[in-house]
């Protein structure tokens, strides 16, 4: 489906980003793996991609730093000469309530989660010029729901989703589709650290209130990203597709009770 395409997935050494990188590779795309702190994991992802019979390369960059972000795109341009798919997945943040949120944590989170998408999409659009392409941002339900300590990340994701709409309209004449995919809690290393590291107990809480009856996996998210990177989703523009097994539809745990409790 994506044979011969060149894809860049930021933050793809592990977790959801890794699952996306592998899924795009399985669809036939050559994939550039971007990482910030986990070189070994990134190199492992690249090896796993190559085993699928496509090309992989690894670029280190803190996407929150505009200079490093630019250098990453310069490397992509020099190595591949073009880009067909840009998945903005890298994210960061520290748990802080709104009243404890200082300028430093706010800036760090917004720079990596929101500004990097804007600047990255600008560069990606340049590399897609004349051929069109797909841009997908990874967001989270925290853009609309309120979770303890999730303030900066939630707000950054709301910004991201708004940017997706603006970019979708501006880039539509260039045949570049821009959308977002948002998940509920996904039990990756990072996801679990936000759930207080408690692991099974918190996972269980999410599982019980998910109508689909199980947790969302990184592969669930990756599948929807792959769909948005394919030709059949061409007329979907500026949308945030929620992958949560119905979690956000049922704030109370009424699953299967028929209101009898």
């Amino acid at each position: 489906m994506l044979k011969g395409k060149v894809a860049l997935v930021t933050g793809s050494s592990r977790g959801i980003g890794r699952a996306i990188a592998l899924r795009l590779a399985r669809e036939g795309a050559d994939v550039i793996v971007n990482y910030f702190r986990r070189r070994e994991a990134a190199e492992q992802t690249a090896r796993d991609i190559e085993e699928l019979g496509v090309k992989a390369s690894v670029i280190r960059a803190n996407v929150g730093d505009p200079e490093k972000l630019d250098e990453m795109f310069d490397t992509v341009a020099a190595s591949f000469g073009r880009l067909d798919i840009f998945v903005s997945n890298a994210a960061s943040g520290l748990p802080r309530s709104a009243l404890d949120l200082d300028a430093k944590v706010w800036g760090w989170t917004m720079d990596i989660n929101a500004r990097a998408f804007l600047l990255g999409a600008q560069r990606a659009a340049g590399l897609m010029e004349g051929r069109g392409g797909k841009i997908v941002a990874i967001t989270s339900l925290g853009s609309k729901l309120v979770w303890p300590g999730y303030t900066a990340i939630g707000v950054s994701k709301a910004t991201l989703e708004a940017l997706v709409r603006y970019l979708a309209v501006e880039l539509a004449p260039k045949d570049i589709c821009v959308n977002a995919v948002g998940a509920s809690f996904v039990p990756t290393e990072v996801g679990l650290s936000y759930a207080g590291g408690a692991g099974e107990e918190d996972e269980g809480a999410f599982w019980k209130t998910t109508p689909a009856g199980r947790m969302v996996s990184p592969e669930d998210v990756a599948g929807v990203v792959a769909f948005l990177c394919g030709s059949e989703s061409f007329m979907i523009r500026g949308q945030t597709i929620i992958v949560d097994g119905g979690f956000s539809l049922t704030p109370l745990n009424l699953k299967g009770k028929g209101g009898e409790n």
Partner: peptide, 11 residues
């Protein structure tokens, strides 16, 4: 120093 400081120092 918090964990964000540490990452920035390392980088």
């Amino acid at each position: 120093a918090d964990s964000l400081d540490m990452v920035q120092v390392l980088v």
